[in-house]
Design a protein around this nucleic acid. Structure first.
Lengths: 147, 147
DNA sequence: TCATTGTTGACTAATCTAATAGACAAAGTA
DNA sequence: TACTTTGTCTATTAGATTAGTCAACAATGA
């Protein structure tokens, strides 16, 4: 039940862009540096996000990438879907035809509930939620620093 | 976010054994056949379950495997843990030291919630729950047949 | 025109997955 | 005791996936 680095890096990159929303295009290089993602790898994560309509990109000098929608309109479920494919724990949950036991398979029902539980978290979290958490964390860290 | 065949096969095998609880040792061959698991592969799944105290095994003629505890005492979380390792979606959730951003990382918090959601399902499901669901399904299927 | 920046496709080392095969160990039975 | 049955352990393997890296290309602004 692992999330690959694609999902992890992608989420971090999008959080960075959400924090800088309305700043205009951000350089991949900047995202890579501040989020500690290998630039050459990040390039490959950007592509599906642009294709999926989450990012807008501008080539050439003064170019970069930016969110194509406001942070509250981007759900994590969509991000993970684009970067990792379906989050179903087991193929038969989405596609009963792949296994002849599907109809009466009790384990399959459980994997379905697992999927629902995961979906629930990812569907109810937007980039805006991440931004707010981030700000709250920074505030707390700051006040801790003063003490 | 995939479950490997280890977790899937293992769960099916244990459900089979839960259904036959108190029947005495069941042949791996029988489990393999009725749950459609390659026998030579199933052997490898049995080992950690025996080591983990979920199964009891008897070698030689009239041998086989059986549950070491009653089905209501075996949680799915334990099964998956033994067969797949920790269910954490991302290593840093269990082990903050692996990444220097852990302390202020908001995505990490989300992966922690994801883990909790998954845990919640697996911790609250026992083999006995699977058995009951199975029986209910069979009843329903039977009554459908009569109509 | 040139420097900058994203885009695309090819390539790769390392690891993981899902098995398969063979020898071995223990337990019951004739 | 010898033999058969059945689980256990160790290797080996083909194929897929992961996590990158590299080089050539395409668009844009100065």
């Amino acid at each position: 039940m692992k999330l690959s680095t694609r999902g992890q890096y992608g989420t971090r990159a999008l959080l960075e862009l959400a924090l800088r929303y309305e700043e205009g295009p951000v350089l991949l290089k900047d995202i890579a540096r501040s989020q500690q993602i290998p630039l050459r790898y990040l390039e490959h994560l950007i592509t599906p996000l642009v294709a999926g309509g989450i990012l807008h990109s501008v080539r050439g000098a003064k170019g970069g990438v930016s969110l194509a929608r406001s942070p509250e309109e981007v759900k994590l479920s969509e991000v993970i879907q684009l970067l990792e494919g379906s989050i179903t724990p087991v193929e038969c949950v989405n596609n009963p035809g792949v296994c002849n036991r599907s109809k009466l398979c009790v384990p399959r029902d459980i994997w379905g509930e697992l999927k629902k539980a995961i979906d629930n978290v990812l569907e109810s979290t937007t980039l805006q939620d991440l931004v707010e958490r981030q700000k709250k964390k920074e505030q707390t860290a700051e006040s801790m620093y003063y003490i």
